[in-house]
Design a protein around this nucleic acid. Structure first.
Length: 289
DNA sequence: CTATGGCCCTGGTTGC
DNA sequence: TGCAACCAGGGCCATA
């Protein structure tokens, strides 16, 4: 599943092939990819524009567009589960899962998305569109101190909170499990009961995990995620918890367990990530008046 | 405020 | 062997 490291890898590898290119034509093969936007308006917004800059915010890939050197809005792409962006040679054969094609003055950008969850949005003001997102975990605003306070300000289970893009933006199921293992924190811990020192460990773990994953161009474990050059990522070889049910914890040797938290498969070491006191998952409702 | 569950989708896996 | 049922998973929405 493309999460921050996979999206960052996509942006980095796509940048030299996209920046400076002009969109000559747009074909939408699966209209729902536009999420309700009018297809004709979308095509009009994109065709003839030049890709001035490619950037990332959370799991969104953003293409700043220009016409005659003036801003012409931003195309935001979200890969969701199975989306992939690749620049192909002009006239390249169309894979049956390609949902959108932006024909360029040199080559063509193919949006391949088997599960059809990915989305393309054209918007005039991306900052407004992205305003509801929490801080970038690799950005300057995401400090250990901020995280410690933010955890205390909420009363959520750790894992669902870290998956909440309005809390921190960019983590998904894999990297939350990885970061929690690295920090030695149980996914069912309540956020407001995480001590300061543990919050600092979590902060460091999130950053280290993401940086290491970017370094290895993300994680691939099924047919879906590939870099824009067609290569699988290499971080799956270094997973500590995710996808390792029954395998020994790399730190202590105990078998990794899989539980379900908020409908999500969750992987952890019950020795390195001790369960919270009194169950933790049960929201004990105390009668009060 | 927080939690739960449905929905969107399809390819891969599991079960019979 | 063949086929149906099941499931994962990000984000969003309605409901409790």
């Amino acid at each position: 599943m493309p999460e921050l490291p996979e999206v960052e890898t996509t942006v980095r590898l796509l940048r030299p092939r996209l920046e400076g290119r002009r969109v000559v034509d747009a074909a939408v093969h699966w209209p729902r990819t536009l999420g309700g936007q009018d297809e004709a308006q979308f095509r009009a917004a994109v065709c003839g524009a030049r890709v001035a800059r490619l950037w990332r915010r959370a799991k969104f890939i953003a293409l700043d567009l220009e016409r005659r050197r003036s801003p012409a809005g931003t195309l935001l792409c979200h890969l969701r589960m199975s989306g992939r962006l690749v620049v192909e040679a002009a006239g390249a054969e169309l894979d049956p899962h390609v949902r959108v094609v932006l024909r360029l003055d040199r080559g063509a950008l193919h949006f391949n998305d088997a599960r059809k969850f990915g989305r393309f949005f054209h918007c005039a003001d991306p900052a407004a569109f992205l305003a509801a997102l929490g801080p970038e975990p690799l950005g300057a605003a995401f400090t250990a101190d901020w995280l410690a306070r933010a955890l205390r300000a909420r009363r959520r289970l750790l894992k669902p909170l870290l998956l909440d893009q309005s809390f921190v933006a960019g983590l998904g199921n894999i990297y939350v499990d990885e970061a929690l293992h690295r920090a030695g924190l149980h996914p069912l811990r309540r956020s407001d009961r995480v001590p300061r020192g543990a919050a600092r460990r979590l902060h460091a773990a999130i950053r280290a995990t993401l940086e290491a994953a970017i370094e290895r161009e993300g994680s691939s474990f099924d047919v879906f995620y590939r870099t824009p050059e067609g290569n699988p990522g290499r971080f799956q070889d270094q997973w500590l918890a995710y996808g390792r049910e029954g395998e020994p914890c790399r730190r202590c040797g105990r078998a990794i367990r899989r539980i379900v938290v908020g409908q999500r498969g969750t992987h952890l070491c019950t020795r390195c990530q001790p369960a919270p006191r009194r169950g933790g998952n049960a929201q004990r409702r105390v009668a009060s008046w």
